[in-house]
Simulated scan of single mutants.
Amino acid sequence: MRQAGAIGIRTPLPGSVVTGRARTNVCSAVAGGVGRKPSRSDRLPIMSAQDDFERVAAGLADRGVTVAKVFGKPAYKDVDGKAFACLFQDALACRLLEGTAEHREALELPGAELFDPSSRHRPMKDWVCVPHANAGRWLEFAEIACGRPR
């Protein structure tokens, strides 16, 4: 959905189907091309980075992880109150420790980069921003970051 005008009327994005509260994209190739009404199985849910952040938070809840603000952004904190990951733009920045296999693996993902919260070319060497395109791996990297000593 996008905002239409100053009064905040929500209108569907082009190529979207609105079903209840969730917005879904419909690929014309999957839907059989122009002229065919898409079936329920043709619709793919689109989750925002914030939605995926909340999904991962739920997956970490049994470890005593809480959500708080760090760098003015939503972040995960362990039971000792130490931040180990935060949502930055549309990526999850995780503290993976430079030189570890997980740090290298995260940096090899398309679009991944070292976390630079100031945007002044002073990245934090232990933190990697895992892009939203790889949100399926956010829980994996967050669990690793949570288990790392500080």
Rank of each mutant, 00 (worst) to 15 (best):
R2P: 02
I7M: 04
I9P: 00
R10K: 12
L13K: 14
V17S: 05
T19P: 00
T19W: 08
T24Q: 06
N25T: 05
C27G: 04
G33N: 06
G33D: 08
V34I: 14
G35A: 07
P38D: 10
P38W: 12
R40N: 08
R40V: 01
S41Q: 13
R43Y: 12
R43H: 12
R43Q: 13
I46V: 14
I46L: 10
M47H: 14
Q50T: 14
D52F: 01
D52T: 02
R55G: 01
R55E: 09
A58Y: 00
A58N: 11
G59D: 09
A61E: 14
A61Q: 14
A61L: 10
R63W: 11
R63Q: 12
V65N: 04
V65G: 04
G72Q: 06
G72A: 02
P74V: 05
A75R: 01
K77R: 15
V79T: 15
D80P: 01
G81C: 09
G81I: 00
F84D: 07
A85P: 00
L87P: 10
Q89T: 09
L92A: 08
A93M: 07
L97E: 14
A101K: 13
A101P: 03
E102P: 03
H103D: 11
R104H: 08
E108S: 15
E108A: 15
F115D: 06
P117Q: 07
P117R: 05
R120T: 01
H121L: 11
H121N: 15
R122H: 13
D126N: 15
W127V: 09
V130M: 08
A135D: 08
F141R: 03
F141N: 03
I144G: 11
A145Y: 03
C146V: 00
G147C: 01
R150V: 00
